[in-house]
Amino acid sequence: VTTYKLVINGKTLKGETTTKAVDAETAEKAFKQYANDNGVDGVWTYDDATKTFTVTE
C-alpha cells in the first residue's frame, strides 16, 4: 500500500488530499471521485516519482 497525493488547482477549490491505495490506478479512481464530488473538472497529470496527481481547472 502506497500513499498518493492529489493537488487541486480548481477555480473555487484549491488544496491537497492524500489516499492510501494498492496502485496508482486505484488512487486515480478515488481522486477522480473526490474531485467530481467537489465539482472540480479539469486536466489531470500524474508524477510517478512523487506519487502525485494534479488536477487543474
Rank of each mutant, 00 (worst) to 15 (best):
N36M: 13
V1H: 12
N9K: 13
D23F: 06
W44F: 05
K20H: 15
V43G: 07
Y34I: 14
N36D: 12
T52H: 03
A30P: 02
G39V: 04
K51D: 03
N9D: 14
A21Y: 05
T12F: 15
A24G: 06
T18W: 15
K11E: 14
V40K: 02
V7L: 09
V55C: 05
T12S: 11
V55W: 02
D37G: 06
A49S: 10
N38T: 06
T26C: 05
V40H: 06
K14L: 06
Y4M: 01
D37E: 08
V40W: 09
I8V: 07
V40R: 02
Y46C: 01
Y4G: 00
V1Q: 11
N9R: 09
L13A: 04
N38W: 10
D23W: 04
T26V: 08
W44S: 01
Q33C: 04
A30N: 12
V22D: 10
L6N: 01
V22C: 04
D47A: 05
N38R: 15
L13N: 15
V55Q: 01
Y4Q: 00
Q33P: 02
A30M: 15
A27P: 01
G42V: 01
G39A: 13
W44H: 01
G39K: 12
W44K: 00
K14Y: 07
A21E: 05
G39F: 13
V7M: 07
K51N: 11
V43K: 07
N38M: 09
Q33W: 08
V1K: 10
E57R: 03
K11Q: 09
T52K: 04
K51I: 03
W44Y: 02
L13S: 06
F53N: 00
T3Q: 11
K51G: 05
L13Y: 15
Y46N: 01
D41M: 10
T54C: 04
V40T: 04
Y4W: 09
V1L: 14
T12K: 15
K14V: 14
K11F: 13
K32Q: 09
V1T: 11
N36V: 13
Y34L: 07
F53D: 00
K14W: 13
V43A: 12
K29S: 11
Q33K: 10
G39M: 10
G10L: 15
D41G: 07
T50R: 07
D48M: 08
A35K: 01
E57M: 04
K11V: 15
E25H: 11
T18M: 15
A27T: 01
T3M: 12
F53H: 02
Y46M: 02
G39L: 14
Y34A: 03
K51L: 08
T19S: 06
A21I: 03
K5E: 03
E25K: 15
D48K: 09
A30F: 12
A30E: 15
D48I: 11
T12A: 11
T19K: 07
D47H: 09
E28L: 13
T3D: 11
A21V: 07
E25I: 12
K11C: 06
D47Y: 05
V22K: 07
K29V: 12
V40N: 03
G10C: 05
T18S: 13
K11H: 15
V1G: 13
D48E: 14
A49M: 13
K20Q: 15
N38H: 10
T3A: 07
Q33H: 13
K29C: 03
T45I: 08
V55D: 00
T2D: 13
T3H: 05
Q33M: 09
T19P: 01
N9M: 13
D41I: 09
K14T: 08
Y46F: 09
G42Q: 02
Y4P: 00
E25W: 08
I8Q: 02
G39S: 10
I8A: 03
A21F: 08
T52Y: 03
D23Y: 06
E25L: 13
D48T: 11
G15Q: 11
A21G: 03
N36F: 12
A49Q: 11
D47K: 04
E25N: 12
G42W: 04
D37S: 07
G42L: 02
E57H: 04
Y34V: 07
V40S: 03
D37R: 11
A27F: 01
F53I: 02
D47G: 02
T26G: 08
D37Y: 08
A30I: 10
K14G: 07
T56S: 11
T17L: 12
V22L: 09
T56L: 07
N36P: 01
D48V: 09
L13F: 14
G10M: 15
E25T: 13
E16W: 08
T54E: 06
T56A: 11
T26K: 08
L6M: 07
L13D: 13
Y4D: 00
T54Y: 06
D37H: 10
G15K: 15
K5A: 05
A21K: 03
Y46D: 00
G42Y: 02
T52E: 04
T3W: 06
G39H: 14
E25P: 08
L6G: 01
T52C: 05
T45P: 00
V43Y: 09
D37Q: 11
T17H: 15
T26I: 08
F53A: 01
D48Q: 07
D48L: 08
A21D: 03
G15C: 07
A21T: 05
T2Q: 09
T56D: 10
T52F: 03
Y34T: 04
K20D: 13
T3Y: 06
A24K: 15
D37M: 10
T50K: 11
T54D: 03
D23S: 15
T17K: 15
W44E: 00
E57T: 03
I8T: 04
T2L: 08
K29T: 09
T54Q: 06
N36L: 13
T19G: 05
Y46E: 00
T3K: 11
Y34D: 02
T52N: 02
G39I: 04
T56Y: 06
Y4V: 01
T45H: 08
D37C: 05
V43D: 08
T26D: 14
E16G: 03
T26M: 07
K5D: 02
V43Q: 09
A27N: 00
T17I: 12
T12Q: 13
K51Y: 13
V1I: 13
V43P: 04
A21S: 05
